[in-house]
Design a protein around this nucleic acid. Structure first.
Lengths: 94, 94, 94, 94
DNA sequence: ACCTCGCTGTCAATGC
DNA sequence: GCATTGACAGCGAGGT
């Protein structure tokens, strides 16, 4: 529960080699940079909704549209043939 | 609950002006583009974790580190904000 | 950050009245009982899948069926008329 | 990826025997019934929190309490299991 | 100010 | 045993 990496054997109890420390630092800051980017994009999305709202659109519905379109895309990508068989088997309404 | 937008008055029941349609299309596709971007960044983050794992790091711990650092940052910002408020209140201009 | 309830004013620093303690205990144990129930149901579900698997069904597909049926139910419950209007506006494919 | 079940050999392409259909139907509806039950329990839990809140408790803290108690239980069980294992290893029958 | 809803991130289960 | 995928809980924003 207290281990930092599986390479902990390389070091004397409780410490990391300098190389490992640098690597770790690098990894963490890279992740943090990417998370920052992600947040910025999320903010932009928020802004688009806000702007749309100021033009009179209902954001709730807009979100619903986006969500449904996404669902549809996913659904379509699924192996429908297989499901059809099962659906048929069930009787499609039950 | 039955309104399409707040601009529903502009149109005869069930339809939108061409301008409104174009605008709507534009908004939706912009959002979808941004969401795509966001997803890509999320995937990159996932990759970084995966790569780190292949180097022997424990991703669970890495995530914990990132989370804690984020919390710290937030806490620090809060504290600074409070401090600033006090300073202002006192008349201290900094 | 250290408050237990908003009724903390009722008590002298750091303690609760006996009544509050009893009430709290009651609430917590009720929740724990319900969570236990929930877990049991989840386990039963797991068992059904396992049993089905032993009869030669592909659990992955079974789960997919259940999920899709659920989605369908939800989707159907949504105000489709409104969405249809928007969809039409967008051109349904773009 | 294209198989319907492992019993697909029993049927001519795209169809299932009546028995298989019935069985499938049964399985799916049983799962759906259990999921319904589970949802009801989850709703009850939600209600308990809501009620507690109306009495002045901070739900966030309540959730934290429940979570911590759960962790403790798990930790204790783990420790006991380890202890038992040691006991067994030593030859101690208890 | 409260409540609801959606999103995100975490954890566990399943399949390869 | 690792990797993928799905379920769940916590958090935060937005609406009323």
């Amino acid at each position: 529960m207290a281990e930092i990496g599986h390479n902990s054997g390389q070091v004397s109890a409780g410490a990391l080699t300098q190389a490992a420390r640098d690597k770790l630092k690098h990894v963490v800051s890279k992740i943090e940079k990417l998370e920052e980017e992600k947040k910025e994009t999320a903010d932009e999305i928020r802004d688009v909704y806000a702007e749309a709202k100021s033009f009179g659109y209902c954001t709730k519905t807009l979100r619903k549209i986006v969500r449904l379109r996404k669902q549809d895309r996913q659904t379509r990508e699924e192996e429908e043939a297989i499901l059809d068989a099962y659906m048929l088997a069930i009787g499609e309404i039950a």
